[in-house]
Design a protein around this nucleic acid. Structure first.
Lengths: 227, 227
DNA sequence: CGCGAGCTTGACGTTGTTCAACTAGAGTGG
DNA sequence: CCACTCTAGTTGAACAACGTCAAGCTCGCG
């Protein structure tokens, strides 16, 4: 059902480039590759974590569930990426929820296979260490944003993240809802909306439906710094 | 100057138990081991990160610097622990500040030596992966606390962290200031003080100078869950 | 053409920070 | 040994920042 075959992903993505042919084959034999519709839950915070997850097509988010529908989005993930690697490896349960934002394809690799490969392939282990460290940098940004900044700073952080890390363009066209922008910034949906129209009015961003274009990145950076 | 010798630490701490004799020697030859007074800065957010840091005696904190003296404490670290491992490995600069809370001994290992060992010792690499994943679990808790909870929930999280992860006892006697408790919970010093005396008054904790004893852990857990 | 989900805006209330004043205790120098 | 200073702790009151609530709107889809 997925449009890309898993073996193609294994051979082409940089995630797997350090693996041997045999190791790729082992993954191929011990994983499932499924098509998900927009909005479906990929894995659920608190559920048993028996798989390492990779997104191969589409767009997904990982988030922490709060009470009364107030979630905190940690990552927006484009293919091909590990999903929540840092908290699946030696955890019994997932400590985050992941869901698709648009129709997507997701690969589930049996955890035992993954850990076996880590034990036999040191280059791969070191690559994973590097990725985990990168993740932690992102967590630090997140913690700074939530803990040390208020509305404007947090919101700027969210927009800059979407632009730099996800869209990789000043133009953010990801079919993300206003609620998701709020959840990403750690603010209410209404505040996100207010800030969007405020920045739009001030000519710092341009709104066209769901598409957001950053016009003055340096001003957003400044907002992020001021907090 | 440190009371424990580095070679003793290398041989006795579980941090290094997977290393060969030669690798330990290599570390011994390429590191410094220094005594720090209370309150001194160990490494500074933004400075070049050429060392992997270990605390061998005393007590330290890692934190993210905010504007106007409002810091966010990430970890309180007892010996023997890696300090900020997750963000020193493949970073050019430290993205956190570390400082001592009481007189302490700190070991700085040259980063190149550390990465060399990672390349040649796969068991050690996998141990590090496990530790990084554990760290990320802590980050998730932190993000949930800051993003999804208010005053009482955050404060309960901070106390529970101090009790369970640092003191490893219901009695928290770490010579930590009220400001540091606030910085750990992501709330103002005044709020921390108010909550301490409130919980003290309600018989949930007991205050004796700087010592805090948790009397009703289950109630704190409840506060943490409610948010 | 109608329905519903997502979006938008304004008014209001709560939460928690900030400011200011005061106290206690620990360290310092005369 | 005592006065002095400086830091940490404490308390109350005022204010600002944001979330919440309510109402209406818009757009896409059936």
């Amino acid at each position: 059902m997925p449009k890309v075959s898993l073996s193609q992903v294994l051979n082409e993505s940089t995630l797997f480039s350090l693996l041997t042919k045999e190791q790729k084959q082992k993954i191929l034999n011990n994983s499932t590759h499924l098509r998900y519709k927009k909005g479906e839950t990929i894995c659920k915070q608190g559920a048993f974590a028996n798989h390492i997850i990779v997104i191969t097509e589409g767009l997904a988010k990982t988030y922490l569930e709060g009470s009364n529908d107030k979630n905190l989005i940690i990552n927006i993930l484009k293919p091909v990426s590990w999903i929540g690697l840092s908290s699946t490896y030696n955890e019994i349960t997932y400590n985050f929820t992941a869901a698709t934002i648009i129709d997507s394809s997701i690969c589930f690799i049996e955890k035992t296979v993954f850990t076996d490969i880590l034990l036999e392939n040191n280059e791969f282990s070191n690559d994973i260490i590097g990725r985990l460290c990168n993740d932690s940098k992102h967590f630090f940004n997140k913690i700074t944003s939530l803990g040390n900044k208020q509305l404007h700073g947090r919101f700027a952080d969210a927009l800059l993240y979407l632009s730099k890390n996800v869209a990789k363009s000043p133009s953010i066209d990801l079919s993300i809802t206003r609620k998701e922008i709020g959840d990403l910034a750690g603010i209410s949906t209404e505040s996100a909306i207010r800030l969007l129209s405020e920045l739009n009015h001030d000519g710092i961003i341009k709104l066209e439906g769901k598409k957001i274009t950053i016009l003055k990145e340096n001003l957003l950076e400044k907002l992020s710094k001021i907090g």
